[in-house]
Amino acid sequence: MVDFYLIDFAFLFTLGITASLHCVGMCGGIACSYAIPVSQKFPKALWKYHSTYVLGRILAYSWIGALLGAVGMGFGFVAGPDSTLQHVGTVFAALIMLIGGAASTFGRKWPDRIASVISSSFRVFTAPVRQWSTRFGPWRALPLGMLSGILPCGMMWAVELRALATNSLLWGMVTMLVFCLITTPPLLMASTIMAKVSPRFRFRSVQFAGIIVMGMGAYLIWKHYVAIQTWFLYLCDPI
């Protein structure tokens, strides 16, 4: 059962807007690192680098979104459409979002142990990507763009969880893609934004993004709580 409505778009957009300042701080460095030498030596070629970087991001985000959506969809097939197990699974994902959002808002990182485990598993992907990105020419920006889709980033994990909870390959992909596209323009203007926006303001935006993640989680729980409650009442009173 596809779980994605217009209100989810609204959440994603707002999260994308607020989280983009966080992205500028973290992933913006990647865009700047290849753009600065290129803009000094071959300013006319900069658009090629930016294009391949954006392409890399789109590829990585859409594939990860599709993969997670497919996992959710597969889980739905196994557990049965609209089954209680599927609802419980979604609520579980939503709970993680809630905890993660709270961690961002109240200045705590996502639990270190979890983050470290996930991060180290991502090294399997990041090592070849780095290898590729040492090559010259505009295509070196492609793996760098792809890498931003597999970085250990709390904001992205929240969106990935939401993609998982869509229970649809297509909507999982759309979820990640929307987030990718909203955050791309600020990344390409990272140097200007970094110069104009103070770290304190970026820090506040991360805290605010945490609230939105919590809102997304809470909304998911509210939606699926009704189904779980119905199932619970049914268990208590089968008639």
Binding site: M26, Y34, S133, P152
Partner: peptide
């Protein structure tokens, strides 16, 4: 501040683009 930043830093250096930090 986070694993993400550390990973990006490693990536930038690993890709031979470490001069970005000096230029910045």
């Amino acid at each position: 501040c986070c694993l993400g930043c550390a990973t990006v830093w490693e990536t930038i250096h690993g890709s031979g683009l470490g001069s970005y930090y000096a230029q910045r």
